[in-house]
Write a protein that binds this DNA or RNA. Sequence first.
DNA 1: GCACACAATGAATACGATTGCAAAATTGAG
DNA 2: CTCAATTTTGCAATCGTATTCATTGTGTGC
Lengths: 342, 342
Amino acid sequence: MKRKSAVTSRDVAERAGVSQSAVSRCFSPKASISEKTKLKVLKAAKELGYRPNSIARSLITRSSRTIALVLSHLDNMFYPLVVEKASLRFQAEDYHLLLFVVPEEGDFAGVMDSILQSQVDGILMMSASLTSSLAHECVETGIPVVLINRNVDFAGISQVYSDNYHGGYWVGSYLAMGGHERVAYLAGLESSSTSRHRYQGLVDGLASMGQQCQVVAQGDYDFERARLATLRLFAEPPYPDAIFAASDHMAVAVMETLRTDLGRRVPEDVSVIGFDDTPIAAWPSYRLTTVRQPVDRMVEEATALLLKQIRQGDFNAENRVLPVTPILRHSARQPAREPVTD
Amino acid sequence: MKRKSAVTSRDVAERAGVSQSAVSRCFSPKASISEKTKLKVLKAAKELGYRPNSIARSLITRSSRTIALVLSHLDNMFYPLVVEKASLRFQAEDYHLLLFVVPEEGDFAGVMDSILQSQVDGILMMSASLTSSLAHECVETGIPVVLINRNVDFAGISQVYSDNYHGGYWVGSYLAMGGHERVAYLAGLESSSTSRHRYQGLVDGLASMGQQCQVVAQGDYDFERARLATLRLFAEPPYPDAIFAASDHMAVAVMETLRTDLGRRVPEDVSVIGFDDTPIAAWPSYRLTTVRQPVDRMVEEATALLLKQIRQGDFNAENRVLPVTPILRHSARQPAREPVTD
DNA sequence: GCACACAATGAATACGATTGCAAAATTGAG
DNA sequence: CTCAATTTTGCAATCGTATTCATTGTGTGC
């Protein structure tokens, strides 16, 4: 079997009877080349099966046209959706995503190291929180970083996330208006700022109606841990009459556990509210009341922001907070009248 | 804001008082370098924040340590699982995945073009069927290609898939033994060989018990289309008493539709069997009887195969067919006695 | 037909590493 | 201490392209 594309721009040049520069110019959009030679070159290129070597191009242009996509778990359907959309969006601009999966125990520094070596033009993070020293390292090397659905208190890093606080706030007031008196919060990972903001919103939303959050359990955005947490919540009275889960993925785990292991009905015995509005939330078996994150807009903003920063080189970090939308379905007892969202 | 890692091996060399070659050797695992100078160099490197430029390395070594991962949809949970595992597996070998998403309408040739330009060391395909001309192109450039969960009749391309035929066969005999008489098959994409093999197995499995498949509907591996297909199956009698869906994802769509729109009970009125055994299949709401694909083994075989082919350069295409496992849950009426699987 | 602007071309260099080769330094044996 | 064997080191070439610069060619207005 033969070795890889041994055919270079020089080979094409020779065959077409022009210089290597001419060949190069045929594949650069804005280079100055006559129509006549361009045709000769393209003909020769096709005959030889020539394709510009993007590695060499990257070396000279100092741009790999590659974005590092950093993530940890793909079990929550929210992330695959983002991955797919983001990849298509970047491909349209002739950029490609290089995948970096941070393992459970998170040797994040190691991953960061290989990212930095890989000469990516930008970093899109939708995973594990960035420690500030690593953030510092990124900013220092001048690589644009955009966090999506995550945030970190560090100037110089751009962030795109949805309005977690007001999403939580809506849930709080909605549950309070629905007459719930023992509301539980099923939190995501402790390191997750999104989970904290949702919680803070919940607390304030409840407070606005004279209620408070009675108990917090840890679900870590994981299906099985959410199940266990639910069982713990119902280990002994007083039992919650509503559970707000920090993701739909966990909310589904809660519903399954309530119905099966605990023999509770949703929403008659316990109300359940999620966050994200993944496709599963709409399935008839769940009909999950939830808070929709605008995935398309998030991806759009994140890619646009990243591309902008890559292109202008000199940039300032920006934060984009996108509005969420309450989705009223049937997993939570409805208030007598519509809630006021603020 | 500064430009990227302006620090090169030359800078490090100067600071450490050695030649640039020496610096390079410090970062090559098997190069000959004395302990003393290695320390000097590493010290200087750390002080300057030096990281080898992997683009330059790729150019000279003619290896990008990058694998193209080609996929189309991520909505079936089977694929995100594969992506995550494969990425971790390759990272462990210091390879990384470059994502190529084939859009719905599948401008596959265009995608293939950018893959070839990107100088990847190998291609892992879990998407849209490869047309034979494109396959030819791959083989010609000498890039190893492994199809996972897909196959194509073309020598020179390696394939890793599970035993779809026998999976289907088991389903057929199991349904027949359960006394079903009007079995429907909900197919995946028409171009999908896996779907065809599962169907063939189903037909033969049914035949082995003197039954046959009564009707085939097209679900294209898509949730919504599977819903519509199910509605069509029940538009007028005679109604199926069992549906075998080519994926769990579609099987869930079927169950939801049966229960909600059609008021049928599963499995009392209609049996449903899926394929894959994604996590969702085990959820109490579905308890889906299904055929498990060995995801871990598939990923393991595929990565091992690809790496082997990359390393030895001269290789022969191989096919690996992995055994599937029937998972008996409660979405299909059980036969009186255990079925004989062959 | 001439001067001038401007487009098209080729030669040469740079990008940042790896690596073969030969010189230099180190080691070991006698 | 000397000489051979071995390891360490630096020089220089290379990978395949983009791009600057100087040069040649083409067309335009007078």
